[in-house]
Design a protein around this nucleic acid. Structure first.
Lengths: 165, 165
DNA sequence: TCAAAAGTTGTTATATAATAACGTTTCGAT
DNA sequence: ATCGAAACGTTATTATATAACAACTTTTGA
C-alpha cells in the first residue's frame, strides 16, 4: 500500500499554509528552549515535514523525504526517534487509525488528540474537544474507569469536500 | 513485540466466560443464517478464538493458535480473510490502537465501536455509547463534517483493577 | 444434470510499520 | 579537559497486513 496519493487538489485551501509551518516551528523552538529540550536539526526537520500539510504523514513517507534530501537513504530509527521525541513533548500526535503523524496545534497545553479526518482530502482537523472529552470522562466515571489516554479519530467527509463551503 | 502476555489473573472474573462464547457463536450462526452468509468452519473458529476472552487478540495470535491446532502452520491470509468477513458483518471490531480484534456484543445492531481498554488486565469493554456518540455527532455537525466512522478507544485502568470493585 | 459463475481456501511472496541492539559521535556539566 | 548522558548511524529483525494466483467448493441456472 504505497502512499502515492497525489497531493489533494487543495491541501490547505483556506489559508497560506507557510504561515502554519513557521508558526509551528517557532512555537516548538520556544517550547524546547524553555524546557531545556534539544530540538536538533533532525527533529526540527521531521517536525517541519510533518507540518508540510494538514494531512497526516506516515513515518516512511518522512523517511523517503529525508533520504531524498540527503542523497543517501536514511534508516527507520532516525525517523522514529525524532517522532518519539516530538510525541513525548506534545509537538505532534499519532493517528492510530492511519499509522500516521500530524502536527499539534497547541503544544503548550497538555491534551488528548481528537480528530476529524476527511477521507477525500485527507485533512485531519484537531478538535478542541470539550464536549467529546466530557462525554468520555463522564461515561468512564460512571463505570469507575480511570482515563489515561483517549484515541478519538472520526472519519468522514469535511465541509469543504461536501460542498458545504 | 511478541504478545507473550501471561493470561491475566482473572481474564473474566465476573462471569462464567464460556457462556459469553456460546452466546456469541449462537448469535453469529443465527445472524448468518438469516442473512444468507456462510459462517464457514474457519470463520467460526476464528470468531471463537476472538471470543476466548474479553481481551483484544492480534491476528498473529489467532494464526498461531490455528497453526497449533492443525499441526501445520496456517498462513496470514487465512486469518485476515476470516477477520475481514467477521468485520464486514459486524461480528467483531478492530481496535486500531492495539492492532487487535475483539468480539462484538450486539452484532445485530449497526453501531460504532467505542471502547474502554484497561492497561492492566487488558480487557476491552464496549460501550453503549450514546453520550459519546452524541458528542461526536454534534461536534462534527457544528463543523459541517459528515461522520462515517468513529474510532473511540479510551485506555486507562478499569474499576476492578483500581480496587473499586 | 451439468456447466458456468461466484465464493472460499491454500500458498508463496511481498509490502508496510516499528523496534532491537550496538557502536560512535556530540553535547553539556563539572 | 574529561566524564557521562544524550543523540545519532547502522544493521538486522520483528510485527502487521496485503497481493497474486491456483485449486477447490458451493450455488445457480440452463
Amino acid at each position: 500500500m504505497s502512499k502515492n496519493i497525489s497531493p489533494p487538489a487543495a491541501p490547505c485551501p483556506h489559508h497560506g499554509h507557510q504561515a502554519c509551518i513557521e508558526q509551528a516551528l517557532a512555537t516548538a523552538v520556544e517550547l524546547c528552549n524553555r524546557g531545556g529540550l534539544r530540538l536538533t536539526p533532525i527533529r526540527k526537520r521531521v517536525l517541519e515535514l510533518v507540518w508540510q500539510s494538514h494531512q497526516p504523514l506516515g513515518a516512511y513517507d518522512i523517511l523517503a523525504q529525508l533520504s531524498a534530501e540527503d542523497g543517501r537513504p536514511a534508516a527507520p530509527p532516525t525517523v522514529y526517534r525524532a517522532l518519539d521525541f516530538l510525541l513525548d513533548n506534545g509537538l505532534i500526535h499519532r493517528l492510530a487509525s492511519l499509522n500516521a503523524f500530524i502536527g499539534c496545534d497547541r503544544p503548550h497545553q497538555a491534551h488528548q488528540g481528537h480528530f476529524l479526518i476527511c477521507r477525500l482530502c485527507k485533512v485531519a482537523r484537531e478538535l478542541p474537544h470539550d464536549a467529546i472529552d466530557e462525554a468520555v470522562e463522564q461515561t468512564a466515571a460512571e463505570l469507575g474507569f480511570l482515563v489515561e489516554q483517549q484515541v478519538v479519530e472520526v472519519s468522514g467527509v469535511c465541509a469543504p469536500c461536501r460542498g458545504h463551503a
